[in-house]
Amino acid sequence: MPDKHYKQIVILSGKGGTGKTTVATALSEIAEAKVVIDTDVDAANMHLVFDYYINSEYDYYGGKKAEINPNKCSQCGMCELVCRFDAIKEFKVSRTSCEGCGFCFRVCPDDAISFYESKSGVYSACELEDQSKFYYAQLLAGEGNSGKLVSEIKKKAYEQVKENVKWIIIDGPPGIGCPVNASLSGVDFVVIVTEPTQSGLHDLKRLINLLEIFKIPSGVIINKYDINTDMSNSIEKFIRPEGISLLAKISFDKKFIKAIQNSKTIIEYDHAYIDTFKTIWNDIQKVILN
């Protein structure tokens, strides 16, 4: 396969609320020739600070759902018996519990169960002010298959990627489960945003274990590092022997919250941060391109 003309980086954290989106939106603002994707499909937030317009919207069909036709059902109970997700009670399928496995549909002797594609989200292809492409999605409430939606939105972005694009910047979901795995596929580098708390470090360790499985290099940003400098030092001490570079330490500053409250990226809100994030972005590029 020929080398791609772009590098992909994803911003992750393990623990939620450490500042992934703040960092991702700031880096997106600095980077040129980029595509931006928000893969936190449960609770997307990048669109709340970007100025963009939507080019097209797509429905996402993540899987199927079963439904029982009471006119055909002889109430034999076979469906309830085979369903392992407790989704069938009194000959009715709970939409939120149905996993879409189709076992009931196939086993029903009365042909009373229909099994249909069900819309479980939407995603949008947008354009930012500098004409870069931006993608974000919204999973419908309580739906599963969020990893598949992440893969689908990334696929759409790759299809539409232009020759001159150099960077794909992905804002990832919290945790270490299926949407995170999906956000990692094909990625060249992971920017981990952590915070100097016991939980931040605990979750960072689990995320690093995951990245070892995927064999993806990463670097760490310690956000709000001066909330607890001892903890921040512990994080530095932990990542060094792992061969993970410390990309930056960012001071706690209420302006970050103010920026979000004003629906602005930190760079738009306070130009003093342009240099901060330019330096961070340059360091990230150095680490990746080395």
């Binding site: 939620g16 989106t21 499909v41 449960d42 609770a43 937030n45 709340l48 600070v49 939120t96 999973l139 409430a141 309580g142 739906e143 599963g144 298959n145 969020s146 979901p173 919290p174 945790g175 489960g177 949407p179 919250i257 979000i260 409250q261 629906s263």
Partner: peptide, 30 residues
């Protein structure tokens, strides 16, 4: 966190759910 199957599984069958949010558009949206 989130609003997908994991969160649904956790809160299902509770008598009451406390939603913790914060004073930002992110917290508000989610």
């Amino acid at each position: 966190p989130g609003t997908s199957c994991s969160m649904l599984e956790a809160v299902k069958d509770s008598d009451f759910c406390v939603l913790v949010t914060e004073s930002t558009p992110f917290g508000f949206n989610d």
